[in-house]
Amino acid sequence: MVHASLRAIGPVVGGAEGVIEALHLAAGREGTLLMILGAECDFDWVNERPEAEREALLADAPPFDAVNAPVFHEVGNLAEAFRRLPGTQVTDNPSGRFATRGRLAHDLLEDAPWHDYYGKGSPLDRLCRAGGCVLRLGASPDTTTVLHFAEYLADVPNKRRVRRTFRCQGADGPETRVIECLDDEHGIVDWPCEDYFATILREYLATGNGSRGRVRQAASELIEADELVRFGARWMTERFR
């Protein structure tokens, strides 16, 4: 699973596509690349309104286009280039949209859960069970999506949950759907310090786990996904209980 800042990496022949080509070469023919996309949804603002009002507000909205919708702006240009490449597979969840390419692409995304899309049975869970890694190329320390799976595993009471409403394409035409999940925007608990994902990543790396190096100009890490998730779940259990 790749998180990258093209700006941090610096100039590369071929730009974003050149970075993706290099990642494919590094992973090899038997490898698989996974990215989180999210989505830019013009009508996402309705989820700031009371739930009883949302369906009416979405009545004239076009259904979410999982294939063509741009990635969430905070995810970055590399993910957008990855999404656009022919043959990239994507999930249809407007809140938790993933993309993948390679040998295990179908296995990682098939029948991905609609609710709790970062939890059990999610592409993140499958990444861990497949022995996958997280590759961070100059990415912000608070953007390590696999730690959302750790939020589901942490033994913490009263985790904050949210319900979001979207206009989607159903079998018989456009329909309104609700997604229920842990709060992946504001966190599962109130935490007065810095983003706790950044703290977990820094403390994990301080144990000596993971491999560090530079990719062009970017300080980078390669981390075993399951190991980081277990560390993160323990960290949250100890502090949030």
Rank of each mutant, 00 (worst) to 15 (best):
R163G: 01
A112F: 03
T100P: 00
D190Q: 14
S140K: 14
H115A: 01
V156A: 02
L127T: 02
F149C: 05
W114A: 01
H106L: 02
D172G: 01
R83E: 03
P157Q: 07
K120N: 05
D142K: 14
R129I: 02
R202C: 05
G173T: 09
Y204V: 06
A206E: 15
W191R: 11
H115K: 09
T91F: 04
K120M: 04
E151K: 15
V90L: 15
A99T: 09
G87M: 04
G119I: 03
R103Y: 01
V189Q: 11
D107F: 09
Q89W: 10
G102T: 11
P174C: 00
P192V: 15
F166V: 09
E175A: 00
T144D: 07
G210Y: 08
D190E: 14
H106D: 13
F166S: 05
E151F: 03
C133D: 14
F98G: 03
T207E: 12
R160L: 01
A150I: 11
E74G: 10
Y152C: 05
E194S: 14
L124P: 00
R163C: 08
R84S: 13
D116A: 01
P94W: 06
L109P: 04
Y117D: 00
R167D: 00
A79T: 06
T144Q: 10
E110L: 04
C128E: 07
W191V: 10
P174F: 01
C193R: 15
S122G: 00
D195A: 10
P141C: 10
A154R: 12
R161K: 12
G131W: 12
Q169H: 10
P94G: 12
C168L: 14
C133A: 11
D172I: 03
E80P: 03
K159C: 08
A150M: 10
I188T: 13
T91Q: 05
D107K: 13
E185G: 15
S95C: 08
F82T: 09
L127R: 11
A81M: 07
V134H: 11
S122K: 04
T145N: 08
A99E: 01
V90R: 14
A79F: 01
R161N: 07
D142N: 15
I200E: 10
Q89T: 11
S211V: 09
K159M: 10
C128Y: 02
G102Y: 13
R164M: 13
R97M: 04
R84V: 06
L108F: 05
L78I: 11
V90I: 11
K159T: 08
Y118N: 08
C168P: 01
S211F: 07
Q89R: 15
T207D: 02
A81E: 06
